[in-house]
Design a protein around this nucleic acid. Structure first.
Length: 296
DNA sequence: CGGAGTGTTAGTCG
DNA sequence: CCGACTAACACTCC
């Protein structure tokens, strides 16, 4: 269930092993995964047919990312768009047996397994797409313009890891908003990349309560939120990256997260700063954890 | 066993 | 334009 740092760490890990690999064979065992995105999911035999035939013989030339989407770009100009949603995983098993993975926390399990829906056989190994809840998708587009024309990226906000993400930009975006902070941070049309974990972590690190209305935030509070987004997300990419590289070293089902979370999943546990028990509340239907004492 | 909850996000409705 | 809610689906935890 990856947020931006996990997706970026996965991209960086896979980039090392996938670039220059040639696609030999593709199998799809659940048509809707490659047929359509969104909530109305329809099997489309023609899309499956194109997906498993057009890319054959092509090389993977690069892996890029927009928000939580990974693009696998092919030598023929086409590309795969991957969104892992809640439980998607990509696992690459090299011919040497070494594994590179990321996304949903990996269980020790056979590959392929009952949640494997796509298998890409490459000249240097095999790439598996697994997805327990099947919300994610891997779509093939003949070129990047066709992807843009779908409007898939139209409502995405600024990339927090890019140099375009400036304090001025963040301030102008957030101060216009009337909603509560957590909801706005979760809203991918403002700043992309924060999901339920990083929203809570950023709010805690910034000393700001997640239920604050955005238009009541002071300039120093906005600056602090901005600084913490710029600090925490790249830090998490690094930490994710260190264990994405080789999953045999990862500590089982908990995966690579949790080591450095200060509030997520810690309701009732002592605050890392003041020791008082952390509180919890639903905001926009999402469990939110915070410290009543340390966050204002 | 039953119901709630899960790192996402599109779509719908008032 | 908003916010609230739902759906897509499988599994785990009380």
């Amino acid at each position: 269930m990856p947020e931006l740092p996990e997706v970026e760490a996965l991209r960086l890990g896979l980039k090392k092993v996938l670039v220059n690999a040639t696609i030999r064979k593709i199998s799809v065992s659940r048509a809707k995964i490659v047929s359509s995105s969104g909530t109305t999911r329809v099997d489309n035999p023609q899309k499956v047919q194109d997906f498993i035939t057009i890319p054959l013989g092509q090389k993977i030339i690069s892996l890029t990312r927009r928000a939580k989407n990974i693009m696998i770009n092919l030598s023929g100009g086409g590309l795969f768009l991957v969104h892992l949603k809640m439980t998607g995983q990509l696992v690459f098993v090299a011919l040497t047996g070494e594994q590179t993975t990321g996304g949903h926390p990996i269980q020790n399990q056979d590959l392929p397994n009952k949640h494997t829906y796509i298998i890409f056989e490459l000249d240097n190994g095999t790439l598996y797409y697994n997805d327990v809840r099947q919300f994610g998708y891997v779509l093939y587009y003949p070129d990047s313009q066709t992807l843009l024309d779908t409007g898939h990226f139209d409502n995405l906000g600024i990339e927090p890891l890019s140099s375009d993400f400036t304090l001025e930009d963040f301030e102008s975006r957030i101060s216009q908003k009337t909603g509560v902070l957590k909801t706005v941070l979760l809203d991918q049309s403002v700043v992309v990349g924060c999901g339920n974990i990083y929203c809570d972590e950023v709010c805690f690190a910034s000393g700001v309560l997640p239920m604050r209305k955005c238009n009541t935030l002071t300039k120093p509070e906005i600056k602090k939120l901005y600084d913490e987004i710029k600090r925490i997300l790249p830090l998490a990419v690094e930490q994710g990256g260190s264990s994405v590289a080789n999953y045999l070293l990862a500590d089982g089902s908990r995966g690579n997260y949790a080591h450095y979370h200060l509030v997520y999943g810690k309701k009732g546990k002592p605050c890392a700063v003041c020791g008082r028990p952390l509180s919890s509340l639903k905001i926009t239907g999402r469990t939110t954890v915070f410290c009543e004492h340390c966050q204002k």
